[in-house]
């Protein structure tokens, strides 16, 4: 929490003049589960970017590469893994139902605090 300011130090009328300063508020601590990029080849399709409710998919837009997750803010909802077309393909090919943390998945969801590998 930032230092609380006095009434003479803040803009009037409740205005917030620093657009997008919510990035300073870290919501990553909410997370019970964490997304991890698995071994399967990411096709950099950006579907996860498209559906993330928290704008937490890190991409190199110019080079069109998916880089990973903004874990300072990611709340661990798991939508990225649910919409991942590579995940869907891996699941279709698998003989049995795969767990969310199956290492064959492109994006897998593990419990927060669990080791990634």
């Amino acid at each position: 929490m930032a230092q609380l300011k006095g009434w003479k130090e803040i803009p009037i009328g409740g205005m917030i003049l620093e657009a997008g300063n919510a990035v300073e508020y870290l919501t990553g601590g909410w997370r019970a589960f964490r997304p991890v990029r698995g071994e399967a080849a990411c096709t950099h399709c950006f579907q996860c970017w498209l559906f993330c409710p928290d704008s937490c998919i890190l991409v190199d837009a110019e080079n069109e590469k998916m880089l990973g997750f903004n874990l300072e803010h990611c709340k661990g909802c798991g939508i990225c893994a649910a919409v991942c077309p590579v995940n869907a393909q891996v699941r279709r090919k698998a003989e049995q139902e795969l767990d969310r943390d199956d290492p064959r998945l492109c994006i897998r969801i593990i419990e927060e605090g669990q080791a990634e590998e």
Binding site: V23, F51, P53, D54, S55, A61, E72, H73, K75, I79
Partner: peptide
């Protein structure tokens, strides 16, 4: 209207909002 092209623009809604995990509204 492809994700890769769209991702080149500035994100207008930043992370750090406090909608619930998995909320449809921010999507």
């Amino acid at each position: 209207l492809t994700p890769k092209e769209l991702a080149k623009n500035v994100e207008r809604l930043t992370p750090g909002h406090r909608l619930c995990a998995g909320c449809g509204a921010s999507i």
